[in-house]
Amino acid sequence: MNEREVIIRVSNIGLCYNTHRQVFSKKRHTKEGFWALEDVSFEVYKGEKLGIIGRNGSGKSTLMKLLAGVICQDRGELYVKKGLHAQLLSLGVGLEGHLSGRENAVLNGMLLGKTRKYMLNCVEKIKEFSELGDFFDCPVNTYSSGMVARLGFSVAMEVEPDVLMLDELLGVGDVGFAEKSNKAMEEKFSSEKTVILISHNPNTIHRLCDRAVWIDNGRTVMEGSTDVVSEKYTKAMKA
C-alpha cells in the first residue's frame, strides 16, 4: 500500500489572541490573552477530504486562519508543504461597491491568487455561473445581498487552490442557486482536490469527508474515521 503524502502537519499548536491595548487596561503589561488554540495536532494528506468538527467557539475558525497563513501560532509547529496554496472560501471579500461585478470578479480573483489574465479568461464563465445577467456590468452597490453572494461564490469556484478550506457548507442565494452552489461544492468533494471542511454538524462531516478531527476548547479530542469521530462527538454533545 502506498504511503499517503502529508501536505500539512499541525503539531501541538497553541495560538493566543491579545486584545488588551489600552493605556488604562490593567492587563496591558501582562502577556495574558485568550488562547483560542491550546494544543492541536493532526495531519492532512494529499487529496483527502478532512472534516474538522467542534462546538461554536472551539477554535475551528482560528485553525482555518492559521492553515490559510493569515495568522501564526504562538507555540508548536506547523508544517505546510513548500509552495502549497491553502485558501479559505471567502465569499465576496473586498468587493468595491462602485465597481461593476465584472471588474470586481477580476480584482477579487487576483486577491485570491490568480493572475489578471487568468481571471479575464474565465470572467464570462463567472457571469454565466452567477446568473447575474446584465447586472454583471452594473455597480455592485446596486446588488441585493443574494446577488453579492452569487458573485462571490462564482468567483471562489473559479479560483482553484491546492487545498480548499470551507467554513460550514452553506447554500448561497435563493433556493435555485443554493441547490446549484451546493452541487458545485459537493463536486469539489468528489474530485482529487484536498478539501478541509469545518462544521459543528456531524452529519455533514460524515456525508462528505473521509476523516475527521474533533476539536474542543482549543484541543484535539480525537482524530480518525468520520464514523467513529461523528458518533463520539454526537454522544458527547447529548451528554
Binding site: 468595491e96 461597491g97 465597481l99 471588474e103 480584482l107 487576483m110
Partner: peptide, 18 residues
C-alpha cells in the same frame, strides 16, 4: 505588482464614481 497597479486604478475609478 499587478494587484497594486489594478487596485490603484480601481480605487481612482471607484473614488471618482462617488
Amino acid at each position: 505588482k499587478d494587484i497594486v497597479w489594478y487596485r490603484t486604478l480601481a480605487q481612482l475609478k471607484s473614488e471618482s464614481k462617488q
